[in-house]
Design a protein around this nucleic acid. Structure first.
Lengths: 338, 338
DNA sequence: GTGAAAGCGCTAACAA
DNA sequence: TTGTTAGCGCTTTCAC
């Protein structure tokens, strides 16, 4: 009857069908999407569990997801502020986690007995999951090697690292830097590491500010990369660091670092070269384009979504997808004579 | 029975209730959110019809919405890429439109016979709607007056305007600028206007690039404010403009303008003062902080969401809410002697 | 070719 | 205090 006419399915007398369609049109009839979802057991929605939208990396990743989702009739809901348990109360067919760290938390928490399709992006940490899920992997170990090698080729030997985290935190970028630089820097390694974090720099009152912010204002206060980069520049000068190049945790941090360092009288890249990670649109805002390792978040987003939607559709899926990394040269790295 | 136990409603024997709760816990039972939505006729989702997520203004507005929505148990879905008709196929209880222009389009299109709660943000255009909906208004006429007055007080008389649109487009910012500056600039007004748009600058091949981009790549290619600002700087120099101050359409444009102008050898603010609109986090990336009229998008987002959720809850609502505007001084405006 | 009924997962209301 | 039913809006299936 009516349903059959509207959906072109089954037998309906042509004339009657015509009439039904016309009336539906007149009344401005649209099927109720919630009822449809209940029936089809498909919400056509997917959650991207992402906190910090001021971070261009996340935005570009999200836009990549959107691109694929749109083509395949899906919506991407953002909700990094949600309590993890809450995930079970929202209408989604699948979930994208931004890092293997989050993936681990999820799989050991609400994901333990909730068999929703899940994929995770990865920055190369070697975390193992309690359940096997697809990983879209950006190999930052390789990537860090690549950019360090690039700096090396430009003649730099003493390469410092600027990070929002203490040296003890096992971030791939830090581990890889340590791995390479310890030969060159030996037991002075630590003095070339600028970890803007209470742990390791607790003596510095300026660092505590970030801790306070994090505890007070919001539950999920995002990392203050830019401001931490600025502080790193101050500490860099105070330590009288003789590094000729500085590798920053990401572009945002690199931009904060450059901005403050210039205000402190350094010339970039003449006095110090600076490089970062990410390669997103926000780079263009700075007067000098920062040299960076592009992580191609848009592509990662596309891949995450493709794999997730394939999973939802019950197709065969790849369990590991690698994202290509590429150096984008800017104005902040200079070749030096040795 | 089971339902009653789980929801604490109606009479259930204490012991039985206990047992039910325990088993539900063990099984990891969670009510199906779609079924709940169908029953309650509430999806607990709201759509923010926003295209350009690379624009900090939109992001901050979205974060404001999120803040309120979270408190009241709602999700905010982004979907500016959706076909307008598609709005009726997604599971939402309400809709937030980003501008009165969009609101008009919606109300005359799918909104004509779809009585979903809607609110719109407004930048002060005097568009009238076919149906009355709440407006969260940022009075840009007043705002433009305010920042022009500020520049005036700093001694500037010849104030140029940089915009991504032709002068004929009736954007409030442009109209207000014209209104004020025509007394000072008279029939030379046009030569102080830099509208980076085919219409008005079609002779310039560099402008056509943007047009092409817009037509090709994506359906909803966002405005290239930054790049247009850069081009405006080139044209500013070519025209040999004697303006002592330049008012840009927004901060992103101002940042592009400043960046290029400096590369062309101008000193800011010594040679030219520059001001913009928005006052969002992306300002900090530039080496010089741009002086701006802060539009407080976060606050606008909060208000939009509050009014919309009140509407959904059937509460009495305000039809016009005004957002406060404030000048944020930066490093790009200098007082001059006359 | 058409109408009626079952069912998607849940709760509110009603009868026992 | 408990079990049952109707109904949220839709489609699919099964009789007619």
């Amino acid at each position: 009857m009516v349903s059959r006419a509207l959906n072109n399915s089954g037998y309906v007398e042509a004339e009657k069908k015509e009439r039904i369609l016309r009336i539906a049109e007149e009344l401005g009839y649209h099927p109720n999407p919630v009822a449809m979802s209940l029936m089809q057991q498909r919400t056509r929605q997917v959650l991207f569990y992402c906190k910090d939208l001021k971070n261009a990396y996340n935005i570009e990743m999200y836009e990549g997801m959107l691109e694929t989702a749109q083509k395949r009739g899906y919506m991407v809901v953002l909700g990094g502020y949600l309590d993890f348990q809450e995930i079970r109360n929202i209408m989604i067919d699948g979930l994208i986690l931004p890092s293997e760290y989050m993936a681990k938390l999820y799989l050991e928490g609400p994901g333990r007995n909730y068999h929703l399709p899940v994929v995770t992006a990865s920055l190369g940490s070697s975390i193992t999951f309690s359940r096997s899920i697809p990983v879209i992997k950006c190999d930052l170990w390789k990537g860090t090697m690549k950019i360090l090698h690039y700096l090396w080729q430009m003649g730099h030997r003493k390469i410092a690292m600027v990070s929002p985290y203490a040296m003890s935190i096992e971030h791939v970028r830090q581990l890889a830097w340590k791995d390479v630089m310890q030969y060159e820097l030996g037991d002075r390694l630590e003095s070339y590491y600028f970890g803007i974090d209470r742990e390791g720099l607790s003596a510095d009152s300026r660092v505590l500010k970030f801790q306070e912010e994090k505890n007070s204002q919001y539950v999920n206060m995002p990392e203050s990369f830019f401001e931490k980069g600025e502080l790193a520049a101050e500490i860099f000068r105070e330590r009288n660091c003789d590094a000729t190049a500085v590798l920053c945790f990401n572009d945002e941090m690199a931009m904060g670092f450059c901005r403050r360092l210039k205000k402190l009288g350094f010339r970039i890249p003449d006095d110090v070269s600076v490089a970062g990670f990410d390669g997103t649109y926000s780079r263009r805002y700075a007067d000098q384009l920062v040299t960076t390792l592009a992580l191609n978040p848009r592509h990662a987003g596309i891949k995450c979504m493709e794999v997730l939607l394939d999973m939802i559709d019950g197709k065969k899926i790849k369990y590991v997808t690698n994202i290509q990394l590429k150096i984008l040269e800017g104005d902040t790295v200079k070749a030096i004579r040795r």
